[in-house]
Simulated scan of single mutants.
Amino acid sequence: MSVAGADDEHWFDDDAGRLVRPYTVSSGRTEPTRRMELLSMVIATGRIPRGHLGPEHAQALGLCGNVTTVAEVAARLKLPAVVTKILLSDLVDWGVVDTRSPDPMADSANPVVLENILNALQRRL
């Protein structure tokens, strides 16, 4: 079994993919508690979370050290966008992450915007 790099958790295998299914990561939930777009901006508040964070929540929080988008967090976590939104909405509910709506100029239906996001994500991964 070939395990992915040091940045990935032990729950990812190069050949098999993610070993923990997305519905497990979201505790079976299919809807986030907060409305977020793929281009919504997220950033850690610096507050310390109460209690223990699960591995996916901790990893998502770690990715929010600088302002980033929901799409970028999803790509780095290698999770579907809706599961990432659920994780991030939990973090917002716990007060450890803030979110704001995307810039009105960042129309997610605009092909140029989507291409720019794709190019940025490919450069970072």
Rank of each mutant, 00 (worst) to 15 (best):
V3C: 06
V3R: 12
A4Y: 04
A4D: 00
G5M: 10
D7M: 08
D8M: 10
D8Q: 06
E9K: 01
H10Q: 13
H10G: 15
W11L: 13
W11F: 15
F12T: 05
D13N: 15
D14N: 07
A16G: 03
A16Y: 12
A16E: 12
G17V: 01
L19F: 08
V20H: 00
V20A: 09
V20I: 15
R21G: 05
P22V: 07
P22F: 10
Y23V: 06
T24V: 03
S27V: 02
S27G: 06
G28Q: 10
R29F: 09
R29D: 10
T30D: 04
P32N: 13
R35I: 13
R35V: 14
M36G: 08
M36E: 01
E37I: 00
S40W: 02
S40D: 12
S40E: 00
M41N: 04
V42K: 05
V42H: 04
I43W: 03
A44C: 09
A44K: 03
A44W: 00
G46F: 09
P49A: 07
L53R: 00
P55E: 06
P55A: 08
P55R: 11
E56H: 12
H57P: 05
H57T: 12
H57V: 01
A58L: 13
Q59C: 09
A60E: 07
A60C: 12
A60S: 13
L61D: 00
L61E: 03
L63V: 06
C64I: 07
C64Q: 05
G65Q: 10
N66P: 02
T68G: 04
T68A: 02
T69Q: 03
V70R: 03
V70G: 04
V70C: 05
V70H: 02
A71Q: 09
V73D: 07
A74H: 02
A75I: 04
R76H: 14
L77M: 15
L77Q: 11
L79K: 03
P80K: 08
V82L: 04
K85Q: 15
I86V: 12
I86R: 08
L87V: 10
L87I: 13
L88E: 05
S89Q: 06
D90E: 14
D93P: 09
W94K: 11
G95Y: 03
V96R: 09
V96E: 06
D98K: 14
T99L: 01
T99K: 01
T99F: 08
R100T: 06
S101G: 07
P102S: 14
D103T: 00
P104T: 12
P104N: 12
A106Q: 11
D107P: 08
D107H: 13
S108K: 02
S108W: 13
P111N: 01
V112Y: 11
V112C: 02
V113I: 15
V113R: 07
L114E: 04
L114F: 00
E115A: 12
E115Y: 10
N119Y: 03
A120Q: 11
Q122W: 11
R123K: 15
R124P: 05
R124M: 11
L125A: 11
L125C: 04
L125E: 08
